[in-house]
Computed example of a mutant assay.
Amino acid sequence: MSDKHATVGVEMLHYAIATVAADGTVTYDLPVKISDAQKITITPKTTTDKYYADDTTADIVNSFDGCDVGIETYGIKNEILAALEGHEVDANGVVIENANDEPPYIALGFRSRKRNGKYRYIWLLLGKKKPGNEEYETIKEKQEPKSAVMPFEFVQCANGNWRYKIDEDDPAAPIGLETKWFAKVYDGSFPA
């Protein structure tokens, strides 16, 4: 039997506010669950340059230019959306959206079930939520729920890292990976 397995699900979507120091070092707050994930799309952006010599391609150089991330969730709480977009929530629970609000840097973590029943765990390390469209529609013959669709853009950290991932069935994966992965953003070590 093959040890390669396709992914068949997505769940446990979390974010953690990131703070970038002047030297480029990134630290993270504790992760917070966003909502029930329906779909996550990660689209790396790269630039490819070809260099020629002696009338042929001598080298191909790929550069990472960040990645676009699209997330669909089964709804989202206003206070979570406000945190992701940098908005204020007043004492009455009303989200105040201001044109000068700036989304914070975040890390985004989740897991995806594989066909063998084990999970792949992922953290995207440094990104911001981009403004997204909202859609509201009248009820017709049948109700058609609308997912919350959220676009993000992620970049590499100062050290070049942009994503961490591990499969639960990797021989080096620690026992209790589910709990450890979402206890903090992975930084080279797992919590005890």
Rank of each mutant, 00 (worst) to 15 (best):
N98T: 14
V26A: 01
V32Y: 00
P131N: 07
P31K: 00
V69Y: 00
L30V: 10
I96T: 10
T138F: 12
Y164P: 03
G109C: 04
K140W: 08
I42M: 10
E102A: 09
P44F: 03
I139R: 06
G176I: 09
S112K: 14
N100Y: 13
A58I: 09
K77P: 06
E79C: 04
G24S: 03
A192L: 13
C157V: 10
T179Q: 13
D3N: 15
S63M: 12
Y52E: 09
D59R: 15
I175F: 07
G132I: 07
A192V: 15
G188P: 10
K142Q: 13
D54N: 15
L125Q: 00
Y136M: 12
Y164W: 11
D187C: 00
L125C: 02
I106A: 01
D54M: 10
E141K: 14
L126S: 02
A107W: 01
Y105W: 15
K129N: 05
D29F: 05
P104A: 01
H14L: 03
G132D: 00
G9Y: 11
E153A: 07
Y105S: 05
Y74G: 12
V61F: 08
A18D: 06
D170A: 11
V8E: 06
M12V: 12
G9V: 07
V20W: 08
A18T: 04
W123T: 02
G66L: 05
E153Y: 10
V10T: 11
A172W: 06
Y186I: 00
I40M: 05
A6W: 11
V149M: 05
E102T: 15
A37W: 01
V10I: 15
A192H: 11
N161E: 11
N100M: 14
T7V: 13
N98A: 09
P171R: 09
V61P: 08
T47S: 14
N100A: 14
H87A: 06
W162V: 04
Y186L: 00
Y74L: 15
V95A: 01
F190Q: 05
I166R: 05
K129V: 09
K33W: 04
D187W: 03
S189C: 02
G117P: 10
N78F: 06
V10A: 03
T25W: 07
S2Y: 08
E72C: 03
M12P: 01
D167E: 15
T25Q: 08
R115I: 11
A18Q: 06
T19A: 11
D29Y: 01
I17A: 02
G86D: 01
E97I: 13
V89E: 02
P171D: 06
L125M: 07
